[in-house]
Each structure stands twice: as structure tokens, then as C-alpha cells.
Simulated scan of single mutants.
Amino acid sequence: MATIGLDKLYYAPITEAPTTGYETYGAPVMLAKAISAELSIELAEATLWADDGAAEIIKEFKNGKLTLGVDDIGKTVAAKLTGATTDENGVLISASEDGGEPVAIGFRAKKANGKYRYFWLYRVKFGIPSTNLATKGDSITFSTPSIEGTVSRRNKPDGNGRHPWKAEVNEDDVDVLPVVTSDWYTEVYEPEFDTDLEV
């Protein structure tokens, strides 16, 4: 179903275990008011040719690019996402050596039926926000920042031994309990699998 809205843009800090790099997520924090979110994906592809045809075709997630349009990026969020620092006078300083730590990104999109589709991207590393400025003319034009990040799979495997990069759910799916979406922003969603099922 088509989406007609976007809101509740959050980030959650990541702490990595020193030896494994496995992620532990901190409490989600509101990033900014969302204007747009564009996610594009790059796949690693390979084809095995045999008997004059494609015998095996593999397509796996390689990485993604997330571009967020937001109303404003405050000093605290900019420092966390990009590695910029605030000096003694409260001025945000960006340096060429800056590099923010990866974070998890969560948001939701309103569907045409009034229900929501929820997302968590498990590991996103952002660059410096872009700024668009323009002089005021005959009409009012809003200039808002955008920030671009690289989406990658997380290091910590899920219950199936795989490395997820995204969680996505529709609140109106019949097999989704209401608590899944009502608790979406209390913590980063952790995949649950029944390991007792026999194959």
C-alpha cells in the first residue's frame, strides 16, 4: 500500500563489544522532525554459468544509502551523528577529521488507510549535513538541511545466525501483535525467532 506521510524520526546510539563488534543499542532519541527519507540499496550479485545458462544467481545486500530531509539538526544531534564538537562558546565546529559513530535509525510512514509502516535500520553512519540557503524574494521558501548516511548490516547475528540490516512491519498485518508497534520507540527492535521449531 502507498504511503502518504513520514514522522517519528529517531536514532539510537550504538556501543560495540571490543572483541566481537556486536552492537548494543542505547535508548532511542528523537533526531528531528522528518521531511523526507530516501533509501536506496546496492546488491552484490554473482551468476554461475553452467550448461550454456545461468545455473545459480546470488543477490545479497551489500549496503545502502539513506538520505534524510529534516527541519533542523541541533548541535547535540549533529555532534552525535557526525563527530562535530561544540567549543567553549557553544559554537558547533566541524573538522576534516570528524567522523560520527554508527547509530540505528527508526521512523514510521503513514499509509493511505491511516495505519503505519514502522522501520529500524540497524547500522547507519552519517556524513556532514548539507545546507541549502537562499535569500528571501517575493515568496517564502523554506531551506532545510539533509543528511546522508551509509546503511550496513549489523555485526551481531540474529537468532537465525544472520546479520540483519533492517526491520520493517505494518501495524495492520494480521499476525502482528499491537505491542510490537506500540513499543517500537522504547528500544531498537530485536528480531525474535522460535529456535525450538523442528525443521
Rank of each mutant, 00 (worst) to 15 (best):
M1I: 11
M1E: 07
Y11P: 02
A12P: 04
P13Y: 05
T15V: 13
E16M: 03
A17M: 01
A17S: 11
T19Y: 05
T20N: 06
T20F: 02
T24W: 04
Y25G: 06
G26H: 06
P28F: 03
V29I: 15
M30L: 03
L31D: 00
L31T: 05
K33T: 08
K33A: 07
A34M: 10
S36I: 01
E38L: 00
I41A: 00
E42K: 13
E45G: 01
T47F: 03
W49N: 07
A50L: 07
D51P: 01
A54H: 00
A55L: 15
I57C: 00
I57H: 10
N63E: 10
G64Q: 08
G64S: 08
G64V: 06
T67P: 00
L68C: 09
L68D: 02
G69P: 11
D72M: 05
I73V: 15
G74T: 10
K75Y: 01
T76V: 12
A79H: 01
G83K: 03
T85D: 06
A95H: 13
S96Q: 13
D98H: 11
G99C: 09
G100I: 14
G100N: 14
P102E: 06
I105C: 11
I105A: 10
G106L: 09
F107L: 13
A109R: 14
K110T: 09
G114F: 08
Y122S: 09
V124A: 08
V124M: 05
G127N: 14
P129K: 10
P129N: 08
P129S: 08
T131M: 08
L133I: 09
L133N: 12
T135K: 12
K136I: 03
G137M: 04
I140C: 00
T141I: 13
F142G: 12
I147A: 12
T150I: 15
R154T: 01
K156A: 15
P157E: 06
P157W: 02
D158M: 07
N160I: 01
G161W: 01
G161P: 06
R162I: 01
P164K: 03
W165I: 02
W165M: 05
E168L: 10
V169A: 11
N170P: 00
D172P: 08
V174P: 07
V174Y: 14
V174R: 11
L177D: 15
S182P: 03
D183L: 08
W184Y: 12
V188E: 04
V188H: 02
Y189V: 15
D194Y: 10
L197H: 11
E198S: 15
